[in-house]
Design a protein around this nucleic acid. Structure first.
Lengths: 130, 130
DNA sequence: TTGCACTCTCTACATATGTAGAGATACAAC
DNA sequence: GTTGTATCTCTACATATGTAGAGAGTGCAA
């Protein structure tokens, strides 16, 4: 049992994506970087980030007057968390229908479909040899 | 533009799944049905349901002393909403990586993989003839 | 007409989340 | 020392979400 499910709110996703882009970073950095998109003030960004530290989503290291933040979870972990949530609630844990819905919903190009087909083939091969 | 994204909280998912199982239903029904899983009191269930009506997730029809609820969204709509959320936030809208992650994460049986492969093949065929 | 049994309405409270202002601090430049 | 400027800390408030108790309305059975 690795970690109790990781779940992010919309605001948290916005922040953590910015953190991933430039790892140790200060709150004012993030605030500036997001200003165009979100119009959040420094206080807002800072509050969210500190709450994320409390939740274990970020780490904070204080150096003099500056607080450096880093992500405490990888993008993959966060992605898995999000998928796990959808899988559990919307699809009762059934993976196949979920993938199916995904294929139905999106407009995938022939190229992308081909790529997926390849992926699955490889996966099957690996499953067999295991 | 169909509907502004549908999003459900954990509690709401629990409720709406119960409603889908037995369409017009009263709050006490749902409460009883969920009691084993959730231990929610009648008040709790009722409050959530009424809030869901306010959000347009359920409809309520009052007949004398009884309020009948129905789902205002289909399971498919709700599923799509959930996937759209994950897609947008965790994968920046890129479907292929999302499917990929899904394949990596879950332990799909060879059978299921085969089924998916078939699905994709069909999809490609349809895409071509279109 | 009294009393259950059922369902409802109203109100309440804790925690979570989104959002931000006001004032304190630290450090560099003058 | 005084003044800026960047950064921080604290506090606050609105809305959302989870959770539930107390008491009122309705109708059947005795």
């Amino acid at each position: 049992m690795p970690h109790s499910e990781i779940e992010l709110t919309e605001a948290e996703w916005t922040i953590i994506k910015a953190v991933w882009e430039k790892q140790p970073c200060a709150a004012p950095d993030i605030q500036e970087r997001l200003e165009k998109k979100t119009a959040w003030t420094y206080s807002t960004v800072r509050t969210i980030m500190d709450r994320m530290v409390a939740k274990g989503l970020l780490t904070a290291e204080k150096i003099r007057n500056l607080t450096l933040y880093r992500s405490a979870v990888t993008r993959e972990q966060a992605q898995r968390g999000e998928l796990a949530y959808a899988l559990k609630h919307a699809f009762n844990g059934a993976l196949t229908p979920m993938v199916q819905c995904l294929l139905d919903a999106g407009d995938l190009s022939a190229d992308e479909l081909a790529k997926l087909e390849t992926l699955i083939k490889e996966k099957r091969k690996r499953a067999k040899t295991k």
